[in-house]
Design a protein around this nucleic acid. Structure first.
Length: 864
DNA sequence: ACTTGTACTTAGTAGATGGCTT
DNA sequence: AAGCCATCTACTAAGTACAAGT
């Protein structure tokens, strides 16, 4: 059971990682007991902040009395006394990883400055709060909310008019339209196979790549026609009531995971195998399966798990009572699950086929529903199986047991005329509702965080598509207003009212840095922040106008950037930070997201904080794409440009991913390549000196050693070089002999090989001498000019390789997917593909093409 | 005006898949 | 065929936003 076999699937190693959830040694009080009183995070004393900044004379004194700090205690923060422990520097000490500046576009503040990588990670300790709040369910309300705006139908031909008023999206709902839904019902078409055919056709067409536009178009047309029945975006109805989402909704309910089947594998307790009741075994298995992952090593996770586990074990009266986590040994279970995994991998064809079949059956049963008569895909129709809650970052509840969901907990939403799906045998549904203002098909309450879970339609469905379109249209509307809005908040930066100043400053950050709004969070969640919830310790200032941000954002992903900010913003933040500022105090002490959003609504209809992210992402993308796409490049070059633009956005939004396993090795290889170039360069320089010793004075740089090229390395490298040379000589010799044999010639004598090898030895000796003397005799025909040319070439190569290095380095950390899926208006991509004759499937996977089908009909000049 | 709750979007990752080499 | 890697998809956690309740 060797728990140390190192081939264990050590889960994710976020190497130089930001996520601050590593169960570090200094995880303070992992021992502190659950009875620690729900550590009320201390709310720092209420202080009035006065505008008395001396650099701010004009405003000094002006704080209106109405403007004192609001009495309401804002969310208590981890006590300031808890010095944030900055741990684990080793991880990101390798500097360099600066987010390379991307654009000069003026919109997002992308002057990425150097990122100085002092590793700072928040480690606020928390105690487990008992969250006893049992919430009562509110009856669904049917509210009204109509908007009446002129509606520009988003027809493909009309798509290019970029200055038109934003298209309003409306969900058609009028009962009168029943005829329409009938009509679409009748045209529901068989998907699947056909679609596959279409795509392979498309692919083939694309193979021929060059021009042949007509063919591509044809295929496209086919697709379109084929889809007209479902093409909601072609026949948008103006419409009254946005809140009504459907007139008819039918579905088959949800799928429950199968009951637990005991395997009888015994875990050990105190060294002895013990028998567990199935219910207990199941939970032990949850942990066993996670053994050696980061989760299972996390003390909080262990603690939470064990609390739940031992309780259940006790209830089932295990023979030795399980009271100590340390005495538990789950490795037999771990091994069992590993073996199971292996088995699954080695399934025979038939077995795989059968499994596929099974999935298909479920998909047909639950993966489909009828919305206004249209057949639509359901997203997550599987009820989440029981397991251990895998909270991210320092989530206080990570590791808690997530119970099996019973049908009685599940409510279904469908239309009144829809047949109610049968609940699993012996069970009943929790509730049946008919709420046409909601898009969910099913919902239930999860036990760990008491949060609500939903079953929604799939991403490719009309409902999701419509709200996606609406989202981007709002962002486009912001594009038209952005100048005015920016002028507005820039002016407000100097407002006399503290509240307005804070609001303007926050808005500045949200706009220029694409920060999230930053809602307040509860006690029993990971301590992460967004703009409005930034605290003093997250921001540091540096003279004239440099601001350094370092905090954990959504998913406990570290946001660390250094930027130049507007002078007044700098002053304001210094002002906010002034005073008896302590860690734990909010930077914007009187601002909340709700107030910010309320203000934004006044500035522009539909505007909220998150719209800025969407707008900036899409805008940046379009801008960068435009600048980077080589007009007559190859497809590959264009794709490179596309991906770079995509990456600019991902960097802007701080979308990160774990570093892959083999990454370090790959980097090492490239670095060696650079070194090899430097080595050659060094040789060339020495040759020049040998040719023309006088140059020593004139060109002192020739004497300078190459950076990063150590003697040890050189020696090692040369040995390798010679070794390779020998191999080569041998290989060539053998090959030649083989040829001779074929030609019925006499093989060369072995002595000849020896001579050849001796030549290499001489070379090696020469190299060794060169190392000692530092003199490199010129090769035959060498001239100073030729050497210079060589050096130039090498410099180029070094630069190129370096670039690919930073490229790789940055890519390893940056996740492009999230921005592609959520932030970049797909119509930009569609137009680009059209314009540059790039096949769509080079940039969108099948699922994305499906999700974005509404966006695919724009013409090549469409603009965000 | 504050708190609580709901509904929906956005997020990273585990595991499946598929193409490629060995 | 096996193993390796880079996507791609499925999953579910973690946000935002706003409305209802107090």
């Amino acid at each position: 059971m060797s728990s140390d076999s190192e081939d264990m699937p050590l889960a994710k190693r976020r190497q130089q990682q930001q996520r601050a959830n590593k169960p570090s040694i200094n995880n303070l009080d992992s021992g502190s007991d659950s009875d620690t009183p729900l550590g009320k995070r201390k709310r720092p004393a209420v202080r009035k902040r006065v505008l008395d900044d001396d650099d701010d004379d004009e405003d000094a004194d002006t704080l209106s009395s109405s403007d004192s700090r609001p009495p309401a205690a804002k969310r208590a923060r981890p006590s300031a006394a808890k010095k944030k422990s900055y741990k684990d520097d080793s991880s990101n000490s390798d500097g360099e990883g600066d987010f390379h500046g991307s654009s000069d576009s003026d919109v997002p503040l992308s002057k990425k400055k150097t990122v100085d990588s002092k590793a700072k990670t928040n480690g606020s300790s928390k105690t487990n709060g008992t969250n006893g709040t049992s919430r009562t369910k509110a009856a669904p309300k049917y509210k009204e909310e109509s908007s009446s705006d002129s509606d520009a139908p988003l027809a493909k031909k009309a798509a290019s008019k970029k200055t038109s008023t934003p298209t309003k999206i409306k969900v058609k709902t009028e009962p009168a339209s029943s005829s329409k839904s009938k009509q679409s019902t009748t045209t529901i078409k068989r998907r699947g196979k056909e679609e596959v055919d279409d795509r392979s056709k498309l692919k083939k067409v694309k193979k021929e790549e060059e021009d042949d536009k007509s063919k591509v178009k044809k295929v496209k047309k086919e697709e379109e026609e084929d889809e007209d029945a479902d093409a909601w975006w072609l026949n948008q109805k103006d419409n009254e009531d946005e809140s009504v989402k459907w007139t008819s909704l039918k579905h088959n309910g949800v799928y429950f995971p199968p009951e637990y089947v005991p395997h009888g594998v015994k875990m050990k307790y105190d060294g002895k195998p013990i028998t567990l009741a199935p219910a207990v075994e199941e939970i032990a298995g949850f942990f066993g399966a996670l053994l050696f992952t980061e989760h299972a090593e996390n003390p909080t996770f262990q603690e939470n798990f064990f609390k739940d586990f031992s309780k259940i074990a006790k209830a089932h009266k295990t023979s030795p009572e399980i009271t100590s986590f340390k005495k538990c040994d789950f490795t037999p279970m771990y091994e069992y699950y590993q073996a199971e995994k292996e088995k699954r991998k080695n399934m025979t064809k038939d077995q795989k086929e059968a499994a596929k079949e099974e999935k298909m059956v479920l998909d047909e049963m639950y993966g489909i529903c009828y919305l206004d008569g249209r057949k639509e895909k359901v997203g997550n129709y599987r009820i989440e199986p029981p397991g251990l809650f895998r909270g991210r970052g320092k989530h206080p509840k990570t590791g808690c047991l997530k119970l099996r969901v019973q049908p009685e907990q599940v409510s279904l939403n469908l239309s009144k005329d829809a047949p109610i799906p049968k609940a699993p045998a012996g069970h009943k549904w929790g509730a049946i509702v008919h709420d046409d203002t909601k898009t969910w098909l099913a919902t239930w309450k999860e036990n760990v965080n008491d949060s609500t879970k939903y079953v929604f339609l799939a991403a490719g469905s009309s409902l999701k598509g419509q709200s996606d379109l609406k989202k981007f249209e709002t962002a486009r509307a912001l594009k038209k207003e952005i100048d005015r809005i920016r002028r507005g908040y820039m002016a407000e930066l100097k407002d006399k009212k503290m509240f307005n100043r804070q609001r303007a400053t926050a808005l500045y950050l949200i706009d220029r840095l694409a920060l999230r709004a930053g809602n307040e969070k509860g006690e029993d969640e990971a301590d992460t922040v967004g703009c409005c919830s930034l605290r003093f310790e997250h921001v540091t200032l540096e003279k004239p106008n440099i601001m350094h941000l370092d905090f954990l954002g959504k998913d406990s992903i570290r946001y660390e950037k250094t930027v130049e900010v507007d002078e007044q913003v700098f002053k304001n933040i210094r002002l906010f930070k002034r005073e008896p500022a302590q860690e734990g105090d909010d930077l914007f002490d009187r601002l909340k997201t709700s107030e910010l959003n309320k203000h934004l609504q006044n500035l522009m209809k539909g505007l909220t904080a998150k719209v800025f992210r969407t707008f900036n992402a899409s805008f940046t993308f379009q801008d960068q794409l435009e600048k980077r796409t080589p007009k007559d490049g190859t497809i590959a070059e264009k794709l490179l440009a596309y991906n770079r633009a995509n990456r600019d956005v991902a960097i802007l939004c701080n979308h990160q991913r774990a570093v892959s396993k083999g990454h370090a090795g790959q980097i090492e290889k490239i670095e060696d390549k650079v070194r090899a170039y430097k080595y050659q360069k060094m040789k060339q320089k020495k040759m020049i000196l040998a040719l023309e010793p006088k140059l020593k004075k004139k060109r002192p740089e020739l004497l300078e050693p190459e950076s990063d090229l150590e003697d040890d390395w050189i020696e090692e490298y040369e040995t390798q070089l010679m070794e390779k040379e020998r191999e080569k000589v041998k290989a060539k010799f053998e090959k030649d002999n083989l040829k001779r044999k074929e030609n019925k010639e006499k093989p060369m004598p072995a002595g000849q090989l020896k001579d050849l090898l001796k030549e290499v030895d001489v070379k090696a000796k020469d190299l060794a001498d060169e190392r000692k003397t530092g003199v490199v005799p010129p090769t035959r025909g060498a001239t100073v000019e030729k050497c210079n040319a060589q050096i130039l070439k090498l410099d180029e190569r070094i630069a190129a390789t370096r670039l690919s290095l930073t490229d790789k380095e940055e890519n390893k950390q940056t996740a492009l997917g999230t921005s592609k899926i959520n932030y970049i208006d797909p119509r930009i991509s569609a137009a680009w593909c059209e314009k540059h004759k790039v096949p769509l499937d080079k940039i969108f996977t099948k699922t994305l093409r499906d999700k974005f089908k509404w966006a695919m009909t724009v013409d090549k000049d469409w603009e965000f």
